[in-house]
Design a protein around this nucleic acid. Structure first.
Length: 415
RNA sequence: GCGAUCGUAGCUCAGUUGGUUAGAGCGCCGGUUUGUGGUACCGGAGGUCGCGGGUUCGAACCCCGUCGAUCGCCCCA
């Protein structure tokens, strides 16, 4: 026998309860985004590599070691999308969506990052994504976060808190970064190996290092607050005031920095509370939804300065938190007691489905065992068909839909 | 890229200090019973014990390598 090829490492075949939970997340997202008038967009799964390398930043982990890149037959370097935002920004520029600005967009689908898989983390994973493009005012941040908050609530997810920070505007961030580099360089030898590396590549990250050697050198004098320009401070205050008005709970997280270069001002993550049930279900992964403002991104792709803010959430991680979802209950099984009645049974099950009844046909295997198999499906009703046609129903509960279908049918030969 | 743990039937798992022909439950197929809302019983198919090498009279079991999975580090959703 030929050998079955293996699935690619880090990909998943989702089925059963997990697939139901996955679908529930997507359906709930679709419902909620409509409440906020986010418009659905469909995006390519791959782009020219430069879309991501320029937008996300060459030195980020995502670009430097996690992209699935390949040359196509024309020799052009393409990359399977590792995130949504860069591709959406490219689409916004190449399609002239400025005409719709400010525009609220939502999408979902697969993303790809070359990483070692572990709990809640895959090479092909899935996100839901929401962006507001062309809106500079803090109210956009508030609306976006209110939607995220409502989504999590409607998914029934508890024990998760919005962690909020500001990275300031360009000037604030630059001053902050310079101060951090100066500070940490003076104690470089005492930092962890990882953080000595971060010092060159991404000094902001040292702030949220878990290594005690690094923690020793981190204190509140290094928070962004001291470096914020008046404008940046005012912006953040308006965001937090808006969240309070909208009834969205949040907590300040001064060491929260996002990994990608394009973030400005607001940065946030929804994180399970320590010791909560949600935290346990997620393993060592913590962030279930994250994002921020990226006013500088469009320029890196050659567009005009365009303020924008967005977030993405891992569908798999959300699905781990929503609990068991059962498929809709089977309402009717048409049981073929004798194969001579097969045509009649097929007609009956078709009529039931057209009448909005969730129905299945049980007509395979040993005729004597069909009844047991039907019962195992736990249907609300069983309709029996033999060589004389339909001849009986048993079950309990509301049968009005089934009765309506039966009374609209041509009388079976027996009646 | 690094580390830990683990690979036995379609699935979940037993398998004694290394010892005859590797087992169970579930699922699948067939039959007997029952005779119409989850019956009981009998039987059957299904395994290169992840793969390759080594030690041994003898390896699912010990050793080495390799592939894969899981969890963690890094980073992220």
């Amino acid at each position: 026998m030929a050998k079955t090829p293996q699935a690619i490492r880090g990909t998943q075949d989702i089925f059963g309860a997990d697939a139901e939970a996955f679908a529930f997340v997507v359906e709930t997202f679709e419902r909620v985004r409509k409440l906020y008038r986010f418009r659905r967009v469909e995006m390519p799964v791959f782009e020219k590599t430069e879309v991501f390398s320029r937008a996300i930043g060459e030195t980020t982990d995502v670009v430097s070691k996690e992209m699935y890149s390949f040359d196509d037959r024309g020799g052009e370097s393409l990359t399977l999308r590792p995130e949504f935002t860069a591709g959406i920004a490219r689409a916004y520029l190449s399609n002239g969506w400025q005409q719709h600005a400010p525009v609220k967009l939502a999408t979902h689908g697969p993303l790809f990052r070359y990483e070692r898989p572990q709990k809640g983390r895959y090479r092909q994973f899935h996100q839901i994504d929401a962006e507001i493009i062309g809106a500079a005012e803090p109210q956009a941040d508030v609306e976006l976060l209110a939607m995220a908050d409502q989504l999590l609530k409607e998914l029934g997810i508890e024990g998760v808190t919005l962690h909020l920070n500001t990275l300031g505007d360009g000037d604030s961030r630059e001053a902050w970064r310079a101060a951090l580099v100066e500070h940490f360089r003076s104690v470089k030898d005492e930092l962890s190996e990882d953080s000595q590396e971060r010092l060159e590549k991404n000094p902001l990250r040292i702030l949220d290092s878990k290594d005690p050697r690094d923690r020793k050198h981190v204190d509140h004098t290094l928070d962004i607050d001291r470096f914020l320009t008046d404008g940046a401070k005012r912006f953040f205050d308006e965001v937090t005031a808006g969240l309070d008005a909208a009834g969205v709970k949040w907590t300040r997280a001064p060491s929260l920095v996002r990994g990608l270069d394009y973030y400005r001002h607001t940065a946030f993550e929804f994180i399970p509370d320590e010791g909560s049930e949600a935290a346990g279900k997620l393993g060592s992964q913590s962030t279930i939804l994250g994002g921020g403002r990226y006013d500088g991104l469009m320029e890196s792709l050659g567009g005009a300065l365009t303020p924008a803010v967005g977030w993405a959430a891992g569908i798999e991680r959300l699905a781990m938190l929503v609990g068991e979802r059962m498929p809709e209950r089977l309402e009717a099984v048409v049981l073929v007691e004798n194969d001579a009645g097969m045509a009649e049974a097929i007609e009956l099950v078709s009529d039931l489905r057209r009448g909005g009844v969730i129905a299945d046909l049980m007509a395979t295997g040993s005729p004597k065992k069909r009844y047991d198999k039907a019962v195992k499906q736990n249907p609300q009703y069983i309709l029996r068909v033999d060589d004389g046609g339909y001849h009986g129903i048993s079950g309990e509960g509301d049968a009005s839909k089934i009765v309506a279908v039966l009374s609209n049918r041509n009388p079976s030969p027996r009646t």
